[in-house]
């Protein structure tokens, strides 16, 4: 392969915009009488940094805790433990007015464009609502901005008074993006933003996301299960498995120098739409264990083809192997 000059190779060592440490989220399981029977350990111990104008991709299979991680950033679910430093403040400790003002700077785009827009509101009103909540501008100013955002996201201005059901999935996702941009945030959490879209529409939305990132100076937390999409858009990628970050590094490094056995299996399992590329498939056996009682030691050891005795008892820490390449695996430490 040719050496690639790409966005991932730029220096990432500026001050992070968002610094997340020891994030943990347990959901209690309650018996019919309200007694707590146990916990779903959705997120165990996650840390990452998000930089201005950069995209951090989080990948993993269903149930690995990637969506929960995204939702806790906006306090849509309350974390059990951990800190998230943004502009010198810990987001997880904020209350009332301060929390509201932080939410203005962080917005979210959801997976399902059919259920994330209010069907009873006109799309103009949908985009203006966040501005109303945060008391930005006068009514006419808000309308101008909504028109402007519609145009930027590729929707005709004369569709301002239409309802969500009059649009296709791809267009609705554009409206969702326009709504997220309305309050001029600095971080957008994108939870599987293109998974529900057809291939020809998916590429349109990805291109749009890249354009507005430059224009609005946005940092993206891009959550997806599709590694080829994440590779295209992300500067850094974190791989999650059963609530743990198993590997995190720049995109190019992850693909050229894959370390963790789970990442390797994940990469080899992607069907490639090109017949000229022949690859060896590593098929990992079995299913993801339940997050209610995750395996002892390394959470991946039950499916890992390279597991050694140590893996069953000692939990590997996420540590730097090469510069800027962290991996949680006993094979490397």
């Amino acid at each position: 392969m040719q050496p690639q000059l790409s966005k991932g190779k730029e220096e990432l060592h500026t001050t992070p915009l968002l610094e997340v440490n020891q994030l943990q989220k347990y959901f209690p399981i309650q018996s019919p009488f309200g007694r707590t029977k146990g916990y779903v350990k959705a997120v165990e111990n996650i840390e990452f940094n998000l930089y201005q104008k950069k995209t951090l991709g989080i990948v993993g299979e269903s149930g690995c805790g990637k969506s929960t991680t995204g939702r806790t950033m906006l306090r849509l679910t309350e974390p059990t433990n951990g800190t998230a430093m943004y502009k010198g403040k810990d987001i997880f400790k904020l209350k009332g007015k301060e929390l509201k003002s932080i939410r203005r700077e962080m917005q979210m785009v959801f997976q399902d464009p059919h259920s994330s827009l209010n069907p009873k509101k006109r799309i103009g009103a949908i985009i203006e609502e966040p501005m109303e909540i945060h008391r930005i501008g006068s009514k006419s100013e808000r309308m101008d901005r909504a028109m402007d955002l519609l145009k930027k996201t590729g929707i005709r201005e004369d569709q301002y008074f239409r309802f969500p059901h009059e649009f296709s999935g791809g267009q609705r996702q554009r409206i969702g993006i326009a709504r997220a941009l309305a309050v001029n945030p600095s971080i957008i959490v994108l939870d599987e933003p293109v998974s529900a879209l057809d291939v020809s529409i998916q590429s349109q939305v990805i291109n749009l996301l890249e354009e507005i990132q430059d224009e609005f100076n946005l940092a993206y937390l891009f959550i997806s299960h599709d590694l080829s999409v994440v590779r295209h858009i992300a500067d850094e990628i974190g791989v999650m498995y059963l609530g743990n970050m198993v590997e995190i590094t720049t995109t190019d490094e992850l693909f050229t120098n894959t370390l963790h056995p789970y990442t390797k299996a994940l990469l080899s399992a992607i069907p490639i739409p090109d017949r000229s590329i022949k690859k060896e498939r590593i098929i990992i056996k079995g299913d993801i264990p339940s997050p209610i009682s995750p395996p002892s030691g390394c959470v991946f050891h039950t499916r890992c083809p390279y597991a050694i005795e140590e893996c069953q008892s000692v939990k590997p820490e996420l540590k730097e192997k090469n510069t800027g390449h962290q991996v949680a695996c006993h094979l490397y430490h």
Binding site: S6, V199, H232, T251
Partner: peptide, 10 residues
């Protein structure tokens, strides 16, 4: 239009 696993990211 599919992002390739070995395509040019820029």
């Amino acid at each position: 239009s599919i992002p390739k696993i070995d395509g040019d990211r820029n």
